[in-house]
Amino acid sequence: MTRTVYVNGEYLPETEAKVSIFDRAFLMADGVYEVTSVLDGKLVDFEGHAKRLQRSLDELDMRAPCTPDELLEIHRKLVELNGIEEGLVYLQVTRGAAPDRDFVFPDPEEVAPTLVLFTQSKPGLADSPAARTGIRVISIEDARWARRDIKTVQLLYPSMGKMMAKKAGVDDAWMIEDGYVTEGTSNNAYFIKGNRIVTRALSNDILHGITRAAVLRFAREAQMEVEERNFTIDEAKAADEAFITSASTFVMPVVEIDGVALGDGTPGPQARRLREIYLDESRKAAI
């Protein structure tokens, strides 16, 4: 089925959607994005994604293409038009199409930002087979730019990291900088020791995950300890459990790191419970 997508104020068949070759996202990776999950036809954590989008735009001195209320309406319309029950809504804002290729930003009053959205249907997203078996990861060097807190479309190295993992016969990679884990290629990283969750603290070094914020809040409410600090890959290997979080994976157990099995090599009870809590609470709060 041909999807309906949104491009700069128009709902179009995906086959008719076009963006200028002079768009700065195409030429300079000068754009930001968000991915909002859909459960039961409703948007999960939309407000958090909208706030993070505005932060990314502000950090790059980029103009917002519309209001949060208008953005919500576009999301809902696309979900309805494409019949999405479980899946994702991808949003991308760019600085727009400047008349010439130039490293200097164009005047925001003269160039309108580009806004593109599309959906991806993913039946069974909440009941993922990978969540029942857990995933395996390897560690790789973190070679990204320094402002990982801004959710830009500069995703080449994370893509390379995914391919390194695939070549190694595993599912994903955790990135290492100065001896410490930063995050996964497209997710935040955690390990559990006893009743304590350890994850890297927020800074410019990692993405300020919307799912991360919700999961840590639910963990504290469930009387788990949360410690936000730098940690090494060896600490994670010695853990009882590990997991990742993202809008597309929710809470995903990690059962192996660099060939070392965690626990008995199956998803641990606390990661499984956190996933259940997150899905339950997200369904209740979805809009």
Rank of each mutant, 00 (worst) to 15 (best):
E276R: 05
A242D: 01
V32D: 06
A247P: 05
V198C: 08
M62T: 01
M175Y: 11
D178G: 06
Y278I: 01
D178Y: 03
G83W: 00
E221D: 01
G169D: 00
M163E: 06
K77H: 08
S186H: 13
E47K: 14
L207K: 06
A236N: 05
K122C: 11
A286H: 04
A29M: 10
T94D: 03
D149A: 11
T152Q: 04
D149F: 15
P68R: 09
F22Q: 05
V181I: 13
D23L: 08
N204E: 11
T119V: 11
G161D: 13
A97Q: 02
D149C: 10
M164R: 10
V104T: 14
I210C: 04
A213F: 12
R101P: 14
K167Y: 06
P158F: 11
F22R: 02
A285R: 12
R52F: 02
R200E: 01
V215R: 11
D142P: 02
A286R: 03
L88I: 11
D40R: 01
T67E: 04
A261T: 11
T2I: 10
E16A: 15
S248E: 01
L117S: 04
F22W: 08
N230G: 12
I244A: 08
G134L: 06
R220F: 07
A222E: 09
D100Y: 00
D172T: 04
M160A: 01
A214G: 13
A261G: 08
V137K: 09
N8C: 08
I233P: 00
P129A: 07
G87V: 03
A64P: 00
V198N: 03
E85V: 12
H208Y: 10
V111D: 12
K166W: 15
L274F: 07
K167M: 13
P13A: 15
L125T: 09
I84C: 05
V116F: 07
R283E: 10
S121W: 03
A29C: 14
Q270K: 15
P65L: 13
T119E: 06
I197E: 10
